[in-house]
Design a protein around this nucleic acid. Structure first.
Lengths: 232, 232
DNA sequence: GTCTATAATAAGATAGAC
DNA sequence: GTCTATCTTATTATAGAC
């Protein structure tokens, strides 16, 4: 296999380093060194660091979201006039992401870790960019869920979708941290198990009975500002 | 009310700015300006930027985790020899966090957003520090769940706990992003609704039937590396 | 404890030869 | 397209007067 073009080597290196150290924690010097390219190459090929970040996302996120939309198209075509099953909609969205995450050969796994870590990114530029990239997919999938669950308040559906995104985000990040914190040994596991595991959890959450405000126990009291003198 | 001490003003300012722009995206100049303190004050009071980050977490995280342990202690004392209800354990962990998040008066809300955003932090120093802070709580709560659900494989419990952390993390981050992406207007909502909403979702996920690998549909095929030439 | 001034370093970006 | 050398700016950290 011939060595990839400089442009692609930079994208690969940046992707891997961004996952590991974040955007601001990864300098262009480190990127180009890792890519065996010259420092000036980033600006030559992409124009700026921000543009490089965009390019890293775009080359995979476009494919992912197109796959998601295609899966939804297919569901709707199959269903005809009938209502879609919510579980199928959820699977079309999250299963597609996990399929990409299962691709360790071509960097899909690395990218999905980056993508899920970036969902709550503080950097305003990145946040804005991602919102635009997601807009159509969000619109289509939320709309499908609204139609599939007409009796459930839309606010509730949006929250549950949001919770599901959170669960997926942590699923992608890996569970090593939990083992480390709990002081338990971590044994490598079949990545294929992640999909059924996550789907079962997501669907359980989606199908949970709607909360009745009156029935929920009140949070336990504790003085959150003991010894803390916040400015308020 | 007298103006808080410089040290506390710096902590408050840093907390708010870290949420908004991340650790590396927040310079000590911006922090001290916002706190109406001198640039050198950070090094005088904390020693370094890293030490300041630690101090920001420690002043609230210690209280939060002590409240969690106290809630669990109370559950175990009440139960005596009987088994704990998993839902009670989950509530002791996540309900405590949401109680702190509901405290908008003293900065608890800001801190919880920071904490949940930081769970998958790339910065090695911060990650290591947080893992140590969480160790005891994780150990106790996972142990309680293991005993409460002896028939469920421990790996499964750890994954579901991890998924729950993800859902909570996104819950804290707020749902504005979803509205923005979907192009829907966002109306402010009673924050008290978040707790029942999240708990219902979490318990639904926790109680979901264990996945049967054979029954789960296979992920749809799509060529994830169309037009992408990853280095592998 | 607080301040000014400055040191020491690292970052993103670019000019211009090849 | 690639390279070296350099500019400009921003950062953390510190020395030393008050």
């Amino acid at each position: 296999m011939p060595q990839p073009e400089t442009r692609d080597r930079i994208l690969d290196a940046a992707e891997a380093l961004f996952v590991e150290h974040g955007f601001e924690g990864t300098s262009m010097r480190v990127i180009t060194r890792s890519a065996q390219a010259n420092l000036a190459a980033v600006n030559y090929h992409f124009g700026s660091k921000d543009a490089l970040i965009q390019a890293v996302f775009r080359r995979r996120l476009t494919a992912l979201n197109e796959a998601r939309l295609a899966a939804l198209d297919q569901l709707e075509a199959q269903a005809g006039d009938a209502a879609l099953k919510p579980s199928r909609i959820v699977f079309a969205f999250f299963g597609t992401a996990l399929a990409m995450a299962a691709d360790t050969e071509h960097g899909g796994a690395t990218f999905m870790r980056l993508l899920s870590r970036t969902y709550n990114e503080p950097n305003a530029f990145v946040r804005q960019f991602l919102a635009e990239e997601y807009a159509e997919v969000m619109d289509r999938f939320l709309g499908a869920l609204f139609r599939a669950l007409p009796e459930v308040p839309r606010t509730e559906i949006m929250w549950r979708f949001h919770f599901m995104m959170g669960a997926m985000s942590f699923a992608m990040a890996g569970i090593e941290s939990v083992h480390a914190m709990a002081g338990l040994p971590y044994e490598d596991e079949d990545p294929a198990r992640l999909l059924p595991r996550l789907m079962s959890f997501l669907l359980g959450g989606l199908r949970a009975p709607l909360a009745d405000l009156a029935e929920t126990p009140r949070p336990m009291m504790f003085d959150v500002h003991d010894g803390i003198h916040g400015a308020g």
